[in-house]
Design a protein around this nucleic acid. Structure first.
Lengths: 365, 365
DNA sequence: GTCGTTGCTGGTAGCGCTGTCAACGATCCT
DNA sequence: AGGATCGTTGACAGCGCTACCAGCAACGAC
């Protein structure tokens, strides 16, 4: 065919328009807003585009329209299983849209986040997904000034920049502790790693629950800034045990730590749950098949990602959600690692007096 | 200041050039190839850019230069831990370059891969990272016709499209089996999930090793197309055991399966390694802290990603590597789950006759 | 019959940057 | 001294697309 082309052999919009017998601008409209065309031209352009194998040039589109079709995503870690689930949700939900995902890793640094945010915003993204609610003042200002929709994910809190999807880590931790209370546990240890804001809020939830029960003891808490791992779980548990041999259970800020604790118990011949109960957080897949199976707090990570992307895309296209804050909740999945032998039969007094060494203000139940 | 700007208030290259007292093209060169400028102009442009807070418009650059600074990455899964490590390597290595990563998930479908490849190539990426060596004929043709560097990752094989970084899954599996042989095991089961090409080649390695030893038996192999999980490991092992109660060890095509097998052994009170030895694949973090610790084949996933990105960027910038194929190797990490009590003391005959039911050609050791 | 109004279409004029090529002076070599 | 070479700089002309606005026909209201 004698149709003229760029030297690179690429098919341009002009070629499609020519073949369809319309003006380039009409062809352009076909790709952006087909409803605006008459049915006749629509089908003509469509078949011309298919025949030529036309693929729009996104750079030209971005330049001419002064906006991109890129959704920026800022997450703190690529290693953490939690974020791979979230990411999968984001990618799945954006897959059949016109938007592409631009991912960046803040490595749990809010300064790095600020830097990346500046970079992203300069390219005028169509939308932004950021992790958490703890941005720097500067970041916060940039986000508020941004002229694109923004979703904060992973947790919910007051004053959303725009939209927000997550759950309360505080409440989730509290619920986990309530479950341990219900199972008769009193001397509950806490182990946490990395101590990013969300882990910190889980700790806060634990502290609140323990204080409410008059069982708070600072010495039950072992944390580190080190990134989490199964091995670390074992090590932290060893530390906790060395300091407080009298604990009857451990709440782990995530499942890797919980698995590490389970292995450490096995190593020391500590019976789970008879001597020590274990509760994790996130409910990763392996929690259901370990021996004993491990209790955990299920979080809706995939949904968090997919809902965030879906909501963002809707907002980009002008259909803002009724309610900008979406609480995806959590569920305490009770498994063997925290089930005492005695069947739960309503509230009852523990069979042994908790060895409370509590020097803080509490409201006894 | 009375400097003219776009309505959006954005600073353009022209403004920077004006302030620096040079032509726009000189300013442009400053950002792409500073060495080409005289020191005087270089510093003038630099300070002008800083003063105005200039950020280049990538869309305009892409349109004018007919190429992008995007590295396309095609991976088969976002869930698999293996790929999150590879991805981390890729992102880390590209972080301080001018290139940005565009990620897409093929979901282990080579047809989906082909579709995505077409999409990517249409945008003229600066480079491409694709997973594996099993592309469709069409994909292969597109890759070969692409005018950008390409790295195939995760495994090595004959006929690289361009560059290649990985290791031999076949050899790695073979080495794992050799280790089990050395520990006195003979009746070695294989369990595998998903059965993507790389898992298939691990199976091939297992088969070759078993045949070489005259120990091959089809009934020792249990596989499924289902995606891998810890739970699945337990289930597959249960199947294997039901069919072949006489096995003395299991080689798992990945670590999740191995962990599942370990838990299933615990559930059934099977002593590991005394009754059943377990070997996994990839050496994920938890393998070193389970009880017993789990033997695995360590693969250099992070390095695979970072080396691929680094090599690709070098190639984009014209510095092609001497050797286009890089074998990152593997290491069998011998841990408790496969160590027999008797210390390894050179080659020795097994203490019991292997129940070989072998109908294939073999070369006995 | 005139004047909107609506629905569709096209022309013009860039978006901000870089490829290409030419020009220039300075330096080097024969 | 003349020419060649190098390093540095700038003018010009788009890259492929879309915003903006104008035009046109068809229709209905008054």
């Amino acid at each position: 065919m004698g149709r003229k082309r760029t030297k690179s052999g690429k098919i341009r919009l002009a070629e499609v328009a020519e073949l369809a017998g319309v003006s380039p601008i009409t062809a352009s409209r076909f790709f952006r807003n087909p409803e605006a065309l008459s049915v006749a031209k629509r089908t003509r352009v469509e078949s011309a585009a298919r025949e030529l194998g036309y693929v729009p040039n996104l750079a030209a589109r971005a330049l001419a329209s002064q906006r991109t079709e890129v959704i920026g995503v800022l997450i703190p870690s690529l290693t953490n299983n939690v974020f791979s689930d979230v990411l999968r949700g984001i990618y799945d939900a954006s897959e059949n849209s016109r938007y592409s995902i631009q991912l960046s890793n803040t490595r749990y640094s809010i300064l790095q986040e600020e830097k990346l945010l500046r970079l992203f915003l300069a390219q005028k993204p169509a939308g932004l997904i950021v992790t958490g609610i703890d941005q720097t003042t500067e970041s916060r200002a940039m986000l508020e000034a941004a002229d694109c929709p923004i979703v904060q994910i992973m947790e919910i809190g007051p004053n959303p920049v725009d939209m927000m999807i997550g759950f309360s880590h505080f409440d989730a931790a509290r619920a986990a502790i309530a479950h341990l209370f219900a199972q008769g546990h009193r001397r509950i240890g806490f182990i946490g790693a990395r101590m990013d804001p969300r882990v910190q809020r889980r700790l806060d939830g634990y502290v609140a629950a323990m204080k409410d029960a008059g069982l708070f003891d600072q010495r039950l808490i072992v944390t580190t800034a080190t990134p989490t791992s199964v091995t670390l779980g074992g090590a932290l548990f060893a530390d906790l045990l060395a300091r407080e041999p009298g604990i009857d259970s451990v709440f782990c800020a995530n499942d890797d730590l919980a698995l590490g604790v389970l292995f450490e118990c096995r190593r020391r011949d500590i019976a789970v749950p008879e001597q020590i109960a274990i509760v994790g957080f996130n409910d990763l897949e392996f929690m259901a098949s370990s021996v004993p199976t491990l209790t955990s707090v299920r979080t809706n990570r995939y949904e968090m990602g997919s809902a965030a992307a879906a909501m963002l895309i809707e907002a980009i296209e002008g259909k803002r959600p009724e309610e900008p804050v979406l609480d995806l909740g959590f569920t305490v999945i009770e498994r063997q690692s925290s089930q005492t032998q005695r069947p739960a039969a309503g509230p009852r007094t523990p069979e042994w007096a908790p060895a409370v060494q509590n020097d803080s203000v509490t409201n006894d139940p």
